[in-house]
Deep mutational scan, measured.
Amino acid sequence: MTFKAIINGKTLKGETTTEAVDAATAEKVFKQYFNDNGLDGEWTYDDATKTFTVTE
């Protein structure tokens, strides 16, 4: 399945996608990506659209 992340950061904005077997796996991938890029913020997840949003 394809999962999307919308990034609303102070220094980084945009979208990225990942292929994962479930939402928990996708969340781990996205959180690692955000940690690697120095992002920290509020997380939400919309199961209907398979979209994570992080707002810094």
Results as ranks from 00 to 15, higher is better:
M1H: 13
M1G: 07
M1L: 13
M1E: 12
M1N: 09
M1Q: 12
T2A: 04
T2N: 05
T2R: 05
T2W: 12
T2K: 12
T2V: 14
F3W: 04
F3C: 05
F3P: 01
K4F: 10
K4W: 12
K4V: 09
K4H: 12
K4C: 09
K4E: 03
A5W: 08
A5D: 04
A5C: 15
A5G: 03
A5Q: 02
A5T: 04
I6W: 04
I6V: 12
I7A: 09
I7L: 11
I7R: 02
I7E: 02
I7M: 12
I7P: 00
N8E: 06
N8A: 11
N8V: 13
N8I: 14
N8T: 06
N8Q: 12
G9D: 03
G9S: 11
G9Q: 06
G9E: 04
G9L: 15
G9A: 06
K10H: 13
K10L: 14
K10E: 11
K10T: 13
T11A: 07
T11C: 15
T11N: 12
T11K: 11
T11Y: 14
T11P: 07
T11R: 06
T11M: 11
L12V: 12
L12P: 06
L12K: 07
L12Y: 14
L12A: 07
L12I: 12
L12T: 10
L12M: 13
K13H: 11
K13E: 07
K13S: 11
K13D: 06
K13L: 09
G14T: 13
G14S: 11
G14D: 06
G14I: 15
G14V: 15
G14H: 14
G14E: 07
E15Y: 12
E15A: 08
E15K: 04
E15N: 06
E15I: 12
E15G: 05
E15C: 15
T16S: 08
T16G: 04
T16P: 03
T16Q: 11
T16Y: 15
T16C: 15
T17Q: 08
T17L: 09
T17R: 07
T17H: 10
T17A: 06
T18D: 01
T18H: 05
T18E: 02
E19N: 12
E19R: 13
E19K: 12
E19D: 10
E19I: 15
E19T: 14
E19Q: 14
E19G: 03
A20Y: 03
A20I: 01
A20E: 03
A20D: 01
A20T: 04
V21L: 13
V21Y: 08
V21M: 11
V21D: 09
V21A: 11
D22F: 02
D22Y: 02
D22K: 01
D22E: 03
A23L: 05
A23T: 04
A23F: 10
A23H: 07
A23C: 09
A23N: 03
A23D: 03
A23I: 08
A24Q: 10
A24G: 07
A24V: 08
A24M: 09
A24L: 11
A24Y: 09
A24N: 07
A24P: 08
T25R: 05
T25Q: 12
T25I: 07
T25W: 06
T25A: 13
T25P: 00
A26Q: 00
A26R: 00
A26C: 02
A26L: 02
A26M: 02
A26T: 00
E27F: 15
E27Y: 15
E27C: 13
E27W: 14
E27Q: 14
E27S: 05
E27T: 03
E27V: 07
K28N: 07
K28C: 07
K28D: 05
K28T: 08
K28S: 09
V29P: 01
V29A: 09
V29W: 14
V29Q: 13
V29E: 07
V29T: 08
F30M: 03
F30K: 00
F30H: 00
F30C: 01
K31W: 04
K31H: 06
K31N: 03
K31R: 14
K31F: 04
K31Y: 04
Q32P: 01
Q32S: 08
Q32K: 13
Q32I: 08
Q32V: 08
Q32E: 11
Q32W: 05
Q32G: 05
Y33C: 10
Y33Q: 06
Y33E: 03
Y33N: 04
Y33A: 04
Y33D: 02
F34L: 10
F34N: 01
F34G: 04
F34V: 13
F34Q: 02
F34H: 02
F34D: 01
F34C: 14
N35D: 08
N35I: 13
N35M: 14
N35S: 13
D36Y: 08
D36H: 08
D36W: 11
D36F: 09
D36A: 12
N37V: 14
N37G: 06
N37M: 15
N37T: 10
N37K: 15
G38Y: 06
G38M: 09
G38D: 08
G38Q: 07
G38I: 08
G38T: 04
G38R: 07
G38L: 09
G38H: 09
G38C: 09
G38E: 05
L39A: 05
L39Y: 13
L39R: 04
L39K: 04
L39H: 04
L39G: 06
L39T: 05
L39Q: 04
D40F: 14
D40E: 12
D40N: 12
D40K: 13
D40R: 12
D40Q: 13
G41S: 06
G41I: 08
G41Y: 15
G41T: 06
G41E: 04
G41N: 07
G41F: 15
E42W: 09
E42M: 10
E42N: 09
E42C: 10
E42D: 12
E42T: 12
E42V: 13
E42I: 14
W43D: 00
W43T: 02
W43A: 01
W43M: 09
T44I: 08
T44K: 08
T44A: 10
T44S: 12
T44R: 07
T44V: 09
Y45H: 00
Y45I: 02
Y45P: 00
Y45Q: 00
Y45K: 01
Y45M: 00
D46K: 01
D46R: 00
D46M: 02
D46P: 00
D46E: 06
D46V: 03
D46W: 02
D47K: 07
D47T: 06
D47P: 13
D47S: 09
D47G: 06
D47H: 08
D47A: 12
D47N: 06
D47F: 06
D47E: 14
D47Q: 06
A48E: 12
A48V: 10
A48R: 09
A48C: 07
A48P: 06
A48L: 11
T49P: 00
T49E: 04
T49Y: 03
T49G: 03
K50G: 04
K50T: 02
K50L: 10
K50F: 11
K50D: 01
K50I: 02
K50Y: 07
K50E: 01
K50Q: 09
K50P: 00
K50M: 09
K50V: 01
T51G: 01
T51Q: 01
T51S: 04
T51R: 01
T51A: 02
F52W: 05
F52P: 01
F52D: 00
F52C: 02
F52N: 00
F52A: 00
T53Y: 13
T53D: 02
T53Q: 05
T53R: 05
T53E: 05
T53F: 13
T53K: 04
T53L: 08
V54I: 13
V54G: 02
V54C: 05
V54N: 01
V54S: 02
V54Q: 03
V54L: 13
V54H: 05
V54A: 03
V54F: 15
V54R: 04
T55F: 10
T55K: 07
T55A: 04
T55D: 04
T55C: 04
E56Q: 12
E56V: 15
E56Y: 11
E56T: 11
E56I: 15
E56A: 09
E56F: 11
E56H: 08
